[in-house]
Amino acid sequence: MNGEKKPVLELQNVTTHYGPILMLQNLSVEIFPGEIVCLLGGNASGKTTTLKTILGMIVPTEGSVYLGGEKISGLNTMEIVKMGISMVPENRRLFKRMTVRENLEIGAFLRTNGKSLDEDMERVFTLFPRVKERLNQRAGTLSGGEQQMVAVGRALMADPKILLMDEPSMGLAPVLVEQTFEIIQQINEQGTTIFVVEQNANMALSIANRGYVLQTGKIVLADTAQGLLNDSMMRHAYLGEA
């Protein structure tokens, strides 16, 4: 789809090593503006590694990453974040001893204009009214669901072109998982492109446009969400069908 549009984020034949250990092998991913794309895979398949590679925390040994056509692999994390990528890390990882407000402010760290900071705060509050009530609470004392909200809010404060999410469903009750995915959809509708990493394939595919399936560092399947939902191997391995 989106044949004529240029991808926002593109991984071209990316190979990544952890020291001598080969982790990602010849990965190619394209994400187009306005899409929700998911990356599915089991434990230790390399999903988090993929996100770290995009953010420049690991430098690919081969291949490159492009953001809006510009090569970003090789830049440092700060420069990459500044160009408009932000991430909701695995397990949220809030700054637990800081207040909710401080967490949000850190999210907007690289933006210096100051003017739209309040606007973005408001945006977070409309998405998550609960966050507004908790502004001065220590992030570590929030409930799991609330922490998720703040983690997403923190990432949105950077006003990113593309939002990376690492297993947003992890450790949440089913109701909260559903709510989270609704919010993801909402954020997407407001114009943010989303690349979400998940083990919960059912949930992810229910909102995504397209998906990739990762196995031991290799992409084994790539299709539209509907295509993946109908794929027999997918149904077998990831969608919990006997």
Binding site: K96, Q199, N200
Partner: peptide
């Protein structure tokens, strides 16, 4: 001494149901 600080510790990953045997 604070309650509810157990969040975000990587050790406490709760497995997601929809992911049977085949892992990457």
């Amino acid at each position: 001494e604070m309650a509810q600080d157990a969040w975000g510790k990587p050790a406490e990953v709760i497995p997601v149901p929809a992911n049977p045997e085949l892992s990457g």
